[in-house]
């Protein structure tokens, strides 16, 4: 028998990166600990830390060995872990994302409703009732892996993926839901679209949200969609954030 692993643990990832692992499952508790750790580490602004990637259950820290050696970074990590252990609750940010469900924006809403045995209205209410936790960003810039989809809405991916979908498309694939941040091929069922840009390379903060934040979908009409779309283009739209 192997001994059980004690978390959190530090794993080597070459001479310019380390992994801090907080567990081996996907859970909101582990993710909350990662967010706390990441926030504290960010505030410390340790010279030599180049790029930090928080994920489902671990944090990858890329660093510059000419500034920071392995033994130095291990000390910094241990200190940060100790400090983050004392923090009981972190600030929760919820981003309200307006979504126009169905119609031309959500061509698969009907199929999702049929598959779930609900009306289209019920699917919209069910999909937008609770905020979703952003476990991590990856795959595409700003693509958020969200937790919390009602299992009733789960539906297999399309057998033939679409070659091109618009940025802002909201879809369901398997037991996951999310927003496509840029034009790409996609196998998820599209149920709606947001007029806001989760990713804009010319914005000061290119990606709206971070891992550990929440997303709350807010159903809007086609008319509201067009108004917001115009505001976004003019740069006057402010995304609503509840803290």
């Amino acid at each position: 028998m192997e001994r059980p692993i004690a978390y959190p643990r530090i794993l080597t990832a070459g001479d310019a990166a380390v992994v801090v692992e907080f567990g081996n499952e996907i859970s909101p508790e582990i993710n909350a600990r990662i967010k706390t750790f990441h926030d504290i580490l960010k505030d410390k602004k340790i010279p030599g830390i180049m790029d930090v990637i928080p994920t489902f259950r671990s944090v990858l820290i890329n660093y510059e060995p000419a500034v920071l050696l392995y033994q130095d970074i291990v000390i910094s990590i241990k200190e940060t872990l100790q400090e983050s252990g004392n923090v009981s609750e972190t600030k929760k940010r919820i981003f309200r994302i307006p979504v126009c469900y169905g119609g031309i924006y959500g061509p698969d809403l009907k199929d999702v409703a049929e598959h779930a045995g609900m009306s289209e209205e019920e699917v919209i209410i069910c999909h937008s009732k609770e905020p979703y936790l952003i476990y991590m960003l990856g795959f595409l810039p700003g693509f958020a892996y969200l937790g919390g989809l009602d299992p009733k809405l789960a539906i297999p991916r399309l057998q033939q993926p679409r070659k091109r979908i618009e940025a802002g498309s909201v879809g369901i694939g398997g037991e996951q839901t999310g927003i496509y941040p840029l034009v790409s091929p996609a196998g998820w069922r599209l149920i709606g679209r947001t007029p806001i840009k989760p990713y804009d390379p010319d914005r000061k903060i290119p990606i709206l949200y971070e891992a550990g934040d929440y997303i709350q979908f807010d159903p809007i009409t086609k008319e509201e969609y067009e108004i917001i779309e115009k505001q976004v283009a003019e740069g006057t739209y402010q995304c609503q954030i509840i803290e």
């Binding site: 990832a13 310019a16 990166a17 996907i26 990637i53 994920t55 795959f139």
Partner: peptide, 26 residues
């Protein structure tokens, strides 16, 4: 469970052969 990939990481999928992750890695 998906985690971060550093430069030079050697992934080994189920086919048992190495893939070394480079500049444009996800």
């Amino acid at each position: 469970i998906s985690d971060g990939i550093p430069l030079g990481a050697i992934q080994i999928p189920s086919h048992g052969k190495p893939i070394v992750m480079l500049a444009d890695r996800q």
